[in-house]
Computed example of a mutant assay.
Amino acid sequence: MLNRILKLAVCVVPAALIVGCATPKAPYDYTAFKAAKPRSIVVLPPLNNSPEVNAGNSFYAQVTYPLAEAGYYVLPVALVGETFKQNGLTSAADIHAVDAKKLNEIFGADAAMYVTITNYGASYNVLNSVVLVTANAKLVDLKTGKLLWSGTASASNNEGGNSGGGGLIGALVAAAVKQIIASTTDASHPVAGVASARLLSAGTPNGMLYGPRSENYLKP
């Protein structure tokens, strides 16, 4: 009986302490990814499902770095954006609807990265103001249209928690100050950079595989 109580207690502690009770994610199936062996990637303008109008541009400006670091040739986003504009495509939704083989004809890339932003910006409650950015992505083979990989990631400016003093009044003042800063500056932009790195960097559990320009390419 005592053992059963102890086991139950372990799984009902506060959320910050119950990581050990969570069911691990199943390993991602990289069969299609490894078979395709993409060398070059065109990143399409992100589909923005958040209320922040600048979310797409902010995230788009930071997506090439983690992919290049992972060992892929990534087409410059300015060139990609201008190419779509010259062809009358300015909406991310319309661009995401373009046929995979057509994208291959236009850009000559092996694969396309489709990014969707679901959260971007600050939310305010009584005791805190938190900037949160969440996005998901999928990598598609442009020759076959097959899904090679998909993932999601989030980042916030409050991941370390609020360790400041001052009690309730101090927490209220700190939250108000953070909200003012978030509303007068693009506090979400650096957070989007963290989310982008988490989403698209290679070598993370269930994340992107290393590309052919990386010394870690094809390593187990």
Score class of each variant (00 low, 15 high):
140 V>W: 02
140 V>I: 15
140 V>L: 08
140 V>K: 03
141 D>T: 01
141 D>W: 01
141 D>C: 01
141 D>Q: 00
141 D>A: 01
141 D>H: 00
142 L>F: 10
142 L>K: 06
142 L>E: 02
142 L>N: 03
142 L>Y: 07
142 L>P: 00
142 L>W: 06
142 L>T: 10
143 K>I: 03
143 K>Q: 13
143 K>E: 06
143 K>D: 03
143 K>V: 02
144 T>L: 02
144 T>H: 03
145 G>C: 11
145 G>P: 09
145 G>H: 11
145 G>F: 13
146 K>V: 05
146 K>F: 05
146 K>M: 09
147 L>F: 06
147 L>T: 13
147 L>C: 06
147 L>H: 05
148 L>M: 07
148 L>F: 08
149 W>P: 01
149 W>C: 04
149 W>F: 05
149 W>E: 01
150 S>Q: 15
150 S>C: 06
150 S>H: 10
150 S>T: 11
150 S>E: 13
150 S>W: 10
151 G>I: 10
151 G>S: 10
152 T>D: 13
152 T>N: 14
152 T>R: 14
152 T>C: 06
152 T>P: 01
153 A>E: 08
153 A>L: 13
153 A>S: 15
153 A>Y: 15
153 A>T: 08
154 S>V: 12
154 S>T: 14
155 A>H: 03
155 A>V: 10
156 S>C: 06
156 S>W: 04
156 S>T: 15
157 N>Y: 04
157 N>M: 07
157 N>F: 05
158 N>Y: 15
158 N>E: 05
158 N>T: 10
158 N>V: 06
159 E>V: 10
159 E>C: 04
159 E>F: 13
160 G>M: 09
160 G>Y: 11
160 G>F: 12
160 G>I: 06
161 G>K: 07
161 G>S: 09
162 N>P: 01
162 N>V: 08
162 N>I: 06
164 G>C: 04
164 G>I: 05
164 G>E: 08
165 G>L: 13
166 G>Q: 03
167 G>M: 04
167 G>H: 02
168 L>W: 03
168 L>D: 00
168 L>Y: 05
169 I>F: 12
169 I>A: 15
169 I>S: 14
169 I>V: 15
169 I>Q: 12
169 I>P: 00
